[in-house]
Amino acid sequence: MEIHTPGTLKLPVSVLTIGALGGIHRGHQALLLKAKERAEKLGVPFVVYTFDPPPKVFLKGCRQLMSVEEKLQRLEMLGANHVIVGPFDEDFTKQEVPDFIAELQEMNPVEIWEGPNFLFGKNRKGTIEVLRRYFKVEVLQPLTCEKGEIISSTRVRKLWQEGNYTQAKKLLGEEYFTSFVAEIPYALKV
């Protein structure tokens, strides 16, 4: 897996997914594995564009679920060929939608895979509909748990705050990964 900074990756063709991927929970895993499957079927590189820190950590001071190093390790385990890590900072929040589109065009994505609530660009003006003006965009519906609730990083954070480490680990899909946030009390580590 190759790691890149924004604006440095140029490819003749790719399958791309973009997202904060704050915890790479089971919902993220489903999206990533679908994009990887499509890239393999089409015989093109699988590219993940993510951010450090995740936007909610920068903008709202939310708890960071994993370090960028752990995120990269998990993305490699999930089969990403290229990962772009954009620094989510004050400058990035000012990036206009056309500038981000131009960067994506350098990777020539034949497909972009996203969740239904994907937004991008300054003031979150970029939507899936905007992205579809330039690219073929596929949307994977959110994954839900057995209780029917959507799996999200926000939900994992809430479970964590409540001390429900077992359920948080379940939503993170820890059966696929050997490590977890180091702060879990030792007795709860499996």
Rank of each mutant, 00 (worst) to 15 (best):
E106R: 14
F58E: 03
M77N: 09
F180L: 08
Y165P: 12
D91R: 15
L59Y: 03
L16C: 14
D99M: 07
K94E: 13
V85S: 01
K147I: 00
N164P: 00
L33S: 08
Q105F: 01
E162Q: 15
L31F: 03
L65F: 04
H25E: 06
I184N: 06
F135E: 08
K158Y: 10
G163V: 12
M77A: 12
I84N: 07
I101P: 14
C145A: 15
N108G: 07
L143N: 02
T93F: 03
P142M: 10
P53H: 09
E162C: 01
F118W: 11
S153I: 04
N123F: 05
F46N: 14
L188S: 10
M66V: 03
D52K: 08
P142G: 04
E76N: 14
R74A: 08
E174M: 10
T178L: 11
T178V: 14
A80T: 13
A20M: 09
F46D: 13
G173E: 04
E106C: 09
S179A: 12
P53Y: 05
K56E: 13
Y186N: 13
R132P: 03
K60L: 15
I184V: 14
Q167R: 11
N108M: 06
R26N: 08
H82A: 12
K169N: 04
K136F: 00
K56D: 08
V190P: 15
A80R: 14
Y176M: 12
V68P: 07
S152G: 03
L21R: 03
P45W: 08
V15P: 08
P12H: 06
L140M: 14
E174K: 05
Q105M: 13
F88K: 01
L75S: 06
E175Q: 11
G19I: 13
F118I: 06
C145M: 10
S14T: 09
V68A: 13
F46T: 09
W113T: 08
Q29F: 00
R124E: 14
H28F: 01
K34V: 02
P142H: 02
R155H: 04
S153G: 05
A102H: 12
T93G: 02
K60Y: 05
V190G: 15
S67R: 12
C62V: 07
I84S: 06
E69I: 00
E40N: 13
V137Q: 07
V110K: 15
A182Y: 02
E146M: 00
R26D: 06
N108C: 08
F177S: 11
L78Y: 01
E96T: 08
P12M: 05
A30K: 11
E129H: 11
G163W: 02
P87W: 00
E76K: 15
F177C: 10
W160D: 01
M107C: 07
V130N: 02
E76G: 15
E90G: 06
V44H: 01
V130E: 15
L75D: 12
V47G: 06
V156S: 07
V130A: 08
N164G: 02
V85K: 09
K125C: 07
M107I: 14
L171M: 05
G22Q: 04
E111H: 11
L32M: 09
D52P: 04
E76Y: 05
G163C: 05
Y49Q: 13
R124T: 00
A168F: 03
K189E: 03
V139S: 11
K169R: 12
L172Y: 01
N81A: 09
M107Y: 04
K189S: 06
L171I: 01
E114K: 10
E129D: 11
I150M: 06
Y165N: 11
L119Y: 02
K71C: 09
D99C: 03
